[in-house]
Design a binder for these strands. Sequence first.
DNA 1: GAGTTTGAAACT
DNA 2: CAGTTTCAAACTC
Length: 810
Amino acid sequence: MDVVSPELNSLLPDEIMDTEAIEEVPHSQSDGSAVQSEPTHDTSVPMETDAPMSSEVLSIYSNATSVEHIQTVTTSAATDSTLSVIPGSQSSITISTSPTLFTIKPALVTSTATTKTTDSVTGTTVSTSGMQKLTTPFAISAANHQIILNKLASSQATEAAKAAGTPPQVIKQEGQKLLVTAIGKTGQPIVLQLPHTGNKPGVSQTSGDTKSPTPQFKVVTIGGRELKPVVGSPGNQMTTLQAQQLKTVQIPKNTPASSAAPIKFIITKTVNSKGLSPQTSVTPVIAGRVMTQTSPVMSPKTITLSEPHNTTISSIPGKKIAISPLKTPSKVTVVSVASPTSNTSQKSVALPVSVALGQQILAVQQSTPASPVKVATSQTTAQNIKPVQSVTVGGVGGSQFKTIIPLATQPNVQQIQVPGSRFHYVRLVTATTASAAIQPGAPNTSSVAAGKPLVVNAGAVRMSVPVVQAQTMKQVAPKPLTSAPQVVTTSQTQQRLIMPATPLPQIQPNFTNLPPGTVLASAPGGSNVGYAVVPAQYVTQLQQSQFVTLASSSSFPASSSIQTQAKLPYNGVSAAETTSRPRKPCNCTKSQCLKLYCDCFANGEFCSNCNCNNCFNNLEHETERLKAIKTCLDRNPEAFKPKIGKGKEGESDRRHSKGCNCKRSGCLKNYCECYEAKIMCSSICKCVGCKNFEESPERKTLMHLADAAEVRVQQQTAAKTKLSSQISDLLMRTTPIISSGGGRLPYTFVTKEVLEATCECLLEQAKRAEQTHQPQEEAERMILEEFGHCLMSIISSAGKAKADCASINC
DNA sequence: GAGTTTGAAACT
DNA sequence: CAGTTTCAAACTC
């Protein structure tokens, strides 16, 4: 499953996503089946559900002439806020798209006369000639053909939730605003195809009304792959947790038979709240997905954005869920959770995601069996559990996010990845249904605890973990989990949550700040619950050698699929580079490799093949290592983040996050972290006598020298290669082939004696020519002629010897 | 390879 | 936050 391409994510600067690029999806079919979508050049902006207090822009525009891909914005934010568009009389948003561009964004908006908006909460509807219905948060601007969707006020959301009979979510009131679940292949925009269900917008659908017609839409990748249809029907076997957390934006389409105008949805996210009105600061942002509807529906087209559950209305203020690497804290990105449902004609997917942002527990849940987009997994279980869930979590106060990547077919491993920073976490979970009680004191579970099922994994797990740096993770057996009573189980959804190891509740690593490459595994020594922070590399190491069984339990599903995740750039260096370049062994002597002095530790890696003394940076000293991580994070939450990141606008693409403090090196030696990273010092550096700037002659000289040296090395390498090839070729040619019936003559016949004899013959011929006073030309001719005779003699002798040899041997 | 230099990390 | 110490890598010889 390619989720948001980690690579792509990593490439995304923190500052980007102000507005996502809008790209037109070539075409798709309108019937909702077999959508033939063509891959486009990159709409592959990673889905971001992040709304860092910034406005979220949902742009929906249609191209009247182009084939349309239906675009789906699925917002299933575990924690809360989602687009509160509910099909129905009161809680639905119906957007009838004329061939215009609709932008739904929380920005200041002027509704226009051509649109019709319906407030999902209040039921107020603003109708315009454009036949567009939107929930009140939507403001429609006719002038620019944009529909601006404003987020519901928190009070409204609460009321709506109450009206729905479900309590409003209380998770992280602040920051999280909208959760958008993107289902799509990496680099591909999510295409939502609206089936011709004939569902009329305006049909009320509340969380309690499960029998109401459920608008549905189909999600299709650009590549034409039908990921999964999403149905917002509450009757879709949603668990309580799902009911509370699942937030879905449904875009049912009322397709008049004659309609042909393509509808194109562009969901744009605005990350930066610059210039946005205060109103926008609370507006969720949906970013990065361009969706085009190819259905031959004539405009006006009606698209209903609906949310099955009012209670999950996104408008809870302060909640933020990020879907991309943004700098906003507490961001959660749900990336590409796509999977076809097993059998229902009307496919539905519930993708509740529970996220404790800013805290440490992240739970992802999916009710329907789903296969990773790129990983063909056979759904053998009827539990409707997606084997792997991919979630991107925004780092606290930073741009990092994590992704749980679907792994193989086994539902017991969840990976959390932090693109760009090589963070890589894996949750080891099993499909066991053992129930337990959530540890009340666990801060990590607070945000997801309420009525949200958690599954304790007691069984042994075998991990298949893609490693950020293209390292293939194989199997790791977790130790038995301890303290079973810490986890609550849901029977139905099999939501799995990694709980902190009991012995070390105080040092639970924060998902957002764990060292890069860290893999969460069961804590050693634990019996039922726990996890170990394991560098992803180490997992690779383990798999390369043998299975490391940390758990006593043995029921490992034979997960054979090993995923190699897209490489992520790290510190400005592509993952490919970092991968191909073996890590330098450390030489720590006093730090026990548990301080940032140690590069291994700083990179979130276990020491391997190092020269360190008294090393504690290994699995055997997990406890100490966790403590050290905790200490480092306490000291500096950014400790494990890449030091080289995206610079400000107008500056270099890469710059040191903190800047250097060089005093004597002039920033032209590897002492300088900027220079070492091959970047120039920036304004944030506090260096003295810096010569590492663009126009620096010293720097240029060094660069030239370095380039020259590199060229020299390359040339030498090439020369060596060529020479080696030539020698090899020569040897191949001159290899005696006596045994063969034909072919070349053995070179061994050109012996020293033969050469001497030949030379004597040539000299004798030269003397003869001289004695006869032959002109030089004639002399040369005579000598060459003699040489030819000699060669003929040699060849003849060789051939005769060869024949004799052959006769003897045979 | 030993010793020195350097600057980040850690500490006070 | 600033100054000092510790540390390991980078560098020099």
